[in-house]
Structure formats: C-alpha cells, structure tokens
C-alpha cells in the first residue's frame, strides 16, 4: 500500500478541517478501506481517523422516538442494542465478529457498497443521515454504486432511525464474501411499509415500491405473490444471474414480511 499522512482528530470540526486537504479521506473502522489500500486501488494523501472523536459512537433514543446512532458506533455496538431489534439483527450479521468490532455505521453508509447491509437498513427505515453540515433523508442519500449525497470532506456524524412497528432484515449471502447476494429490509410503520433491497441491483440499494404498495394494502407475504422485479436492472455475476437475483428479491421480501417482529 502507498504511504499517507495520518491524523486522529478529537472533534468533528478538526476532522472536517483535516479532510479539506486534497485527497484526504476519512477512516472509520477501515474494514473496507484497508483491504482496498492493500490492493493499491486507492491513494489517499491523508487518512483522518474518526475513532478519536468523543461521543461519535454514542447510541440513544431521542425524544422523538428515533434510535440515534453515532457514525463511529461499531456494528458490535449496534448489535448489542435492544430498541430496534431488526436493525440490531442486521448489524449482528455484518461480516464476522472481528469485523463488527471495528467496522462503523458511518463508514458503511458513506461507502455505499451495493452489497452492504446498512444501506438497506437505513433506506428501509427511512433514516436520516446527519452530517457535520446538514441532515439528509435516506431517500436522497444513496445515489448508486459507491455514490452518496455526501460532498467532498463532509462527514456523517449520526444516523437517526425511526423505529417501526415491525421489521425484518432477510439476507441471502454470497457464499464467498458473505456479503448479501440479495437482502431485503422490510419495515412497517404506522404510515406505511418500506422495502429496501441491497446486493441485487446495478444501481445499488433501492426501494421496491410495488411491494411497498401491495404491503400497505395488506401486510402479508401473499400480497406480493403476483409481483415481480425487473431482472434487467439486476446484477449478473458468477454468483447468480440477474434473473436469480430478481427472484431472490421476491423470496427474501416474502420471508422478511413473514418473520417481521
């Protein structure tokens, strides 16, 4: 890997200042970034660790009833929470135990890997991604493969999850990477159902609006039995064809609805 400068600021403001340098990059848990650097696929001039910022890993329920998760909270920390079981369950199944002890929600969302778990959790929950400068609705945050609404140097500080009546994350893994081959997050709120799909689409995480509409009518797995997802939009690779992924979207959605708690 190429060498780089390293700073570990203790406030968000310092971090933002450090990220103003050209080719500076934020370092969360590093569980995706470090392997990328090892392959010499990235060449940041400076890494700005977000692990030294006091309170950036806090987790609490705010007065509005949202589960608020600091950007530096690890997957293990989120997995240990009880306020939003489906989200804790999602976090508990990311990577492996050692990865969960380092990897952070902020890092995962900012990276927006098309096969990552958290984007489905955030989009499926209608979460709000809060940065050093603004709040971004999940619906506006994810902009395709590895692309987000974040500006250069903008860092996520926390994510606010409205807690649904019931929800479930159903994941079908790609057998090598253990990332989702296709995974679906279903959340039923008083004002409607959200269905977010990761791992499947060429455009990254997406909401399956037809399923949402059907489930708004009746929240039952049978409601989606006549629906289908357009295979043309799905990823096709050695682990599964686009048709297979389109099929899995439906199967995983139905199973998530059945298992939602």
């Amino acid at each position: 890997m190429y060498n780089f400068d390293f700073v570990k600021p203790s406030t968000v403001d310092e971090a933002v200042a450090a990220l103003a340098d050209e080719d500076a990059q934020a370092l969360g848990g590093g569980q995706t970034l470090i392997p990328t650097l090892k392959q010499r696929l990235a060449m940041p001039s400076k890494l700005v660790s977000l692990k030294g910022i006091e309170g950036l890993d806090k987790i609490f329920v705010d007065r509005g009833g949202n589960l608020v998760i600091g950007a530096a909270a690890t997957h293990a920390q989120v997995a240990a929470t009880t306020d939003y079981p489906a989200l804790a369950s999602l976090a508990a199944r990311i990577g492996d135990p050692a990865v969960r002890n380092r990897g952070t929600i902020g890092g995962s969302l900012a990276n927006n890997d098309p096969s990552a778990c958290y984007p489905a959790g955030a989009l499926g929950s209608g979460a709000t991604i809060v940065t050093n400068g603004r709040s971004i609705e999940a619906d506006d945050f994810f902009e395709g493969l590895f692309e987000t609404a974040l500006e250069e140097g903008e860092i996520i500080t926390e994510v606010r999850f409205p807690i649904p009546e019931k929800a479930c994350y159903m994941k079908f893994i790609q057998p090598a990477s253990r990332f989702p081959l296709t995974a679906v997050f279903v959340a039923k709120f008083a004002d409607g159902v959200r269905v977010a799909v990761t791992g499947a689409s060429n455009d990254g995480v997406f909401r399956w609006s037809d399923a949402e509409a059907a489930l708004n009518t009746t929240f039952d797995a049978g409601s989606i039995s006549e629906l289908s997802v357009d295979a043309d939009d799905m990823i096709s690779d050695i682990h599964g064809s686009s048709e297979y992924r389109a099929h899995l979207v439906k199967v995983m959605t139905a199973r998530a609805v059945k298992a939602a708690l």
């Binding site: 370092l27 590093g30 569980q31 470090i34 890494l47 692990k51 050692a98 990865v99 002890n101 380092r102």
Partner: peptide, 13 residues
Amino acid sequence: GVSVKSCNVFAVE
C-alpha cells in the same frame, strides 16, 4: 478486550 483482525487495522490507530 475484543477481537480484531490485525491485518485490517493500522498500528498507529
């Protein structure tokens, strides 16, 4: 006190 993959963390961190 927790498990970490030592190939996936910088010593300086």
